[in-house]
Simulated scan of single mutants.
Amino acid sequence: MSIIPPRGRGTASNPHNRFAPTRSQVEDDGWFQDETPPSLATEVRREQAKTVISRNQSPDVGFDRSVNPYRGCEHGCIYCFARPSHAYWDLSPGIDFETKLIAKTNLADRLEEELGKPGYVPRPIALGINTDGYQPIEREYQLTRRALEILLRFRHPVTIITKSSLILRDLDLLEELASRNLVSVAFSLTTLDDELKRIMEPRTASPSARLRAMRTLGEHRVPVSVITAPIIPMINDMELEALLEAARDAGARSAGYVLLRLPLEIAELFEEWLQAHFPERAAHVMSLIRQSRGGRNYDSQFGTRMRGEGIFADLLAQRFALARKRLGLNHREGFNLDCSQFAPPGRQMALL
């Protein structure tokens, strides 16, 4: 029997993380008991981070450094590629990832310190990539806003990806950054169906709220793009063209997409989610995923992990390319950010 997640959460499960030294198994003793409480409160731990700028050398992403104010994400997206990272704190990638969050409360101090190092060479920082910097707890902690304040003061370029309309709270900072060609914003848009959004990414902004936020940013000359990610076979792939058209109408100037990724513990959680919400098509969905991943749930190889391979993946790529061309979503002006303005406060600038 499938387990239905509590309302407002992406999963009801809390599988062991891959580093756990022991395993426990629930056995039915004949007495009725709820496996998951009807509602689960969010817990936030405070962390004093040693560093806040993470580096990567992946050829599949367009940045080499990122800043993540939070570990875990209350948005609860069932497919989130960051879920397995919770294992490093001896927490589950399941409901723990959505409810046991970690806030880097000294982020502003560390970011300022790292940007001010004499040997630092600026390149665009991706803000809130592993987990959304505008998830609900940002209303209280405001770590993302503090990071933007520092980046503006240092004249440092930044890119943002979000599913939240909370980003409009920082319109004043974004508008000033944009006036200096120091910011671009991408919205992740996965569906236009409110009910599908509710079960797939329960605590994110509604599709209409994201589109309104895109339009507002565009009206204030903040460069906006859309990422239809992830595309899930037989769940939201049929919406691809409609998503791109809605984003274009809301002011998006460029677009990207990612085929569903199921690394490590996510595959188990996703299959459980399918059985709970789409039992009649679960086998078909997983079959198409495996056909696009060399017969496995996931292939981590650079170059194919974001797009997949095979008939379904090739057809998806063709559909995306045709729609992007038809809708004119291939503009790059406003997205090539300026690193030359970088000027740490108090440091003497070069004469030549």
Rank of each mutant, 00 (worst) to 15 (best):
D60P: 01
H75P: 05
L91D: 09
Y88H: 11
D132M: 10
R110C: 13
N106P: 06
T131Y: 05
R110S: 11
P84G: 00
G133S: 15
R145G: 15
P124W: 00
I150A: 00
R45H: 15
R65S: 13
L115Y: 08
S58E: 01
Y134N: 12
E138V: 06
N68P: 04
C80R: 02
T131C: 12
G133W: 02
G72Q: 03
R145K: 12
D109M: 12
L127C: 07
Y70K: 02
D64T: 09
R46W: 15
Y79W: 07
R45A: 15
I95L: 14
F63C: 03
A103E: 09
R110K: 15
T131F: 09
G119M: 04
R83C: 05
C73K: 05
Y79R: 00
P84M: 05
R139L: 13
Q135F: 02
G62Q: 01
R146M: 14
D60V: 01
V61G: 01
N56T: 12
P69S: 08
L91Q: 12
L91F: 07
S54N: 11
P122Y: 02
L115N: 07
L148W: 02
Y88L: 12
P124H: 03
T144A: 06
I125H: 11
E47K: 12
D132S: 05
E140M: 08
K100I: 11
P118H: 05
P136A: 09
F81N: 00
R110D: 12
I95G: 10
Y79F: 14
Y141C: 08
I125L: 14
A49F: 06
T144I: 03
A147Q: 07
H75D: 08
K100R: 14
A82V: 03
I129W: 12
A87C: 03
L115D: 12
Y141M: 11
D132V: 03
L127G: 03
V52D: 13
C80E: 00
L111P: 10
D109F: 13
R110Y: 08
A103S: 13
I78Y: 00
Y134V: 10
D109G: 08
E149L: 05
P93M: 01
Q135I: 13
R71N: 05
S66G: 08
T99A: 10
R110N: 12
G128Y: 00
R55P: 00
C80N: 01
Q142D: 06
F81M: 02
F97C: 09
E113S: 12
L127H: 06
A147H: 04
L107H: 10
K50L: 13
L111W: 12
L143R: 04
P118F: 00
A126R: 10
Y88S: 08
P93L: 01
V44R: 04
V44W: 00
L107M: 11
E47C: 14
E74S: 10
T131Q: 06
R139Y: 07
F97M: 11
C77H: 01
S85G: 02
I53A: 09
S92M: 08
R123E: 14
L107D: 15
P93G: 13
T144N: 02
P84R: 06
Y88M: 09
